[in-house]
């Protein structure tokens, strides 16, 4: 038994080394995460294998408690896995975080109310020691990118929820990390604002060629945005299906009525249903 085990892990090591091409941004192998809670251990992630390539737009979809947010937090080094390996840009997540490899957009805007919008967007730049002149230039550019020019001097609580979330995206973009992690960023917004922001996000992705990991509850949103859809299921959180989208890169909003789109959406729904256990 021992030898077999060692052989496996050796193979995994070799595999990890040889396949580490410049194109792989995130590589997870047998990732496990168990939270110790008062009610006993909770298996948030169980044996997750996933590769995400450069420039991909990957959506994570699944019911509550399937570990999609946890997976994103593991990539961001906000949670520590209890088993398996994960690399971000070929480094440990902690190293990647220290090198400011990613921008993170949370479920809520989490803007600091004592800072104006431009100061909020400049926050990561201040922390990273960017010069004042460059800060100004980048803040202007990123606020332009999310269509918030003219709101620089406003405070977050003077803006609508959609605008706040856009400002938080601008903040994540300001320091130009190649990887963007988004945790249900539009979950709290209404459908119209959401459509609009989805369109803008796609446009931004096309323009910047960033790698985006996107957690969502919504099947249309996942299908509309992604090049790859990761379907997850709960208890324990695991990947049940990985769907590579066949939709073209250029996607007008009405592509959502095309048969191709509906076919992918159907497969996502099937995957969700298959993974869902009704026992509890």
């Amino acid at each position: 038994m021992m030898t077999v085990k060692r052989a496996y892990s050796l193979e995994a090591c070799i595999g990890a080394e040889t396949d580490l091409t410049a194109d792989t941004v995130i590589r997870a192998k047998g990732l496990d995460l168990t939270f110790q809670t008062g009610d006993g251990p909770v298996h948030a992630l169980s044996n997750v294998d996933l590769d995400i390539g450069k420039g991909e737009f990957v959506s994570f979809i699944g019911p509550s408690g399937c570990g999609k947010t946890t997976f994103l937090r593991v990539i961001a080094d906000l949670e520590q896995p209890t088993g398996g390996t994960i690399t971000v840009n070929g480094m440990s997540p902690e190293e990647a975080r220290r090198r400011r490899a990613y921008g993170y957009v949370f479920q809520a805007a989490a803007l600091y109310p004592w800072r104006t919008i431009e100061k909020n967007v400049a926050l990561p730049l201040e922390i990273m020691g960017v010069s004042a002149a460059e800060q100004r230039e980048r803040v202007k550019r990123t606020l332009d990118l999310v269509n918030l020019s003219g709101f620089e001097k406003k405070f977050p609580w003077q803006l609508s929820g959609g605008m706040q979330q856009r400002a938080s995206i601008a903040r994540a973009l300001a320091f130009d990390a190649d990887l963007l992690l988004m945790d249900e960023p539009f979950g709290a917004l209404d459908e119209i604002v959401r459509d609009h922001l989805n369109e803008q996000l796609l446009e931004l992705w096309a323009r910047t060629n960033k790698t985006i990991c996107f957690v969502t509850h919504s099947i249309p949103e996942a299908v509309y945005l992604s090049t790859k859809i990761v379907v997850m299921s709960p208890r324990p959180g695991r990947v049940t299906d990985v769907i590579v989208s066949t939709l073209p890169k250029d996607r007008p909003l009405d592509i959502r009525e095309s048969p191709e789109f509906l076919a992918i959406a159907h497969r996502v729904r099937e995957g969700l249903r298959a993974g869902h256990s009704y026992e509890d």
Binding site: R97, R98, R99, R100, F106, Y112, L123, I127, M128, F175
Partner: peptide
């Protein structure tokens, strides 16, 4: 808040 702290952590 926890989210605001996490944000700082993501900036290292």
């Amino acid at each position: 808040g926890a989210m605001e702290r996490d944000l700082m952590r993501t900036y290292a």
